[in-house]
Design a protein around this nucleic acid. Sequence first.
RNA 1: AGCGAGAUAGGGUAGUCUGGAGUGCCCGCCGGGCUCAUAACCCGGAGAUCGGUGGUUCAAAUCCACCUCUCGCUACCA
Length: 486
Amino acid sequence: MNKFYITTPIYYVNDKPHIGHAYTTIAADVIARWHRLKGEDVFFLTGTDEHGEKVETSAKKAGKLPKEFVDNIVGAYKYIWEKLNIKYDYFIRTSDSSHVKVVSEIIKKIAENGDIYKGYYEGWYCVSDESFWTELQLVDGKCPSCGREVKKVKEETYFFKLSKYQNKLIDFYNKNQKFLSPNFRSKEIINRVNDGLKDVSITRTTVKWAVPFPLDGSHYVYVWVDALCNYISAINWPHGPEFKEYWPADIHLIGKEINWFHSVIWPAMLFSAGIEPPKMVFAHGWWTVDGKKMSKSLDNFVDPILMVDKYSTDAFRYSLIREMPLGDDGDFSEKAIVSRLNNELVAELGNLINRVLTMAERFEGKIEGEAELDQKLNIGKIDSLMEDVDTFNALNEIFVFIKATNKYISEKEPWRLQGRELSNVLYNLLEASRIISILVYPFMPNTGAKIANQLGIEVGTIDDCTFREWTSKVKKGELLFKKFIQ
RNA sequence: AGCGAGAUAGGGUAGUCUGGAGUGCCCGCCGGGCUCAUAACCCGGAGAUCGGUGGUUCAAAUCCACCUCUCGCUACCA
């Protein structure tokens, strides 16, 4: 049996979950569910990133210990994933003792390989933003974020010899074309790596809510190094059976803003520690909201919970996937959700199932016939799109089949038919509906299950997506989707 | 500044890698058909110098050059 290991980033607990988090996780869930339908041994990982200065500060403000503080917020993430029908296999937390131990072990491995050395980090620090900037980033010598004065800081730190891996990375990218995905992002990374790599600072002395640095008691591991290790700590590197089973990861699905860490620093760390790198890092795009960038000043972060309560989990999942190809940027608007819900989910899919079931229920006698509609179904194409992580076009292709099925009804005019002719049309419609229930399931699990239920069957697998004998008895239920009227 | 992405009918998109009649999809608009169905479904139509200029080619949305505009990234902030 093929294994399939997919991950989302671990989300920083200081942020409130918004549409960006929801999108990544929904996309990963859709892909994971598709692979499960193919009968693969799937491991889908998500979790939370809980260390760092901001969390430390927020906890202090809330009058809590960091651990108490994050325990609270983790619940919010788990709740939202439940609302969105996310079926993850494991939820990793960077504050888990098992994870902390792995981070420490990895650092030791890297050090054994001679890739860690002590030095000084020099940079510019903005007190009001509490953030570090490089010389290049400063605007007129001032903080690029708030425009205020910055002060030069010099701090003892340990470095990871990233520069050592420049050639090895380029070689790796060339040999593994799919690693940098989608394709257009590969140039971005390759050019920058070719421009030269600087060693990266991997410890801090000021932040205490972090993994203790195993080589020096006065240092703590920088959060990014800590965070990246989650992908192997979650499967119990180095000796766990899960690690042997699932590593290397098939897909790290991430947002484009953290591509550098996943496509450059992470594989370099793994090279150094003697661990195989993942097969693919897929960086997806960003959402604007009603044409505007999401920002704190506009306070226009979309709350997924509100969307789900208003439009249903499936309509929300569907809208996000249908709106844009996974790698691109796109715009989110409630207007678009309403439009897709009313025109596509209600009018095309929901209405199709409803009319098919109405006719099938009225028919008395055995439903049998010859497959005709199967010509409109290209399951191979859909699967190969899904293999290419092209959820957008795969979903499009599924709707091509749904439309073809609607068209088949008007062409055959079953209301004019009876007996064997009618039976034949109904046979095709029911088989098409059965297959639709399977295809739609990874995208809209509730809907797929509801369709199957009304057809009197269980949701099948990808192997079941061929026309065969109809044996079940249908029982029409409530409408799949209801039109949303403002 | 460097690197990268994008500009396709009224709006939104796909197609561009691997050149072949402006080909597809959604919304909106106009007309028709149907009555199984959630005023849903189906068919037809109007609407585009495929950002601009030049080039390669029998042939360019697609390849090349330059230009204009929009957006992202630039490593120690997750």
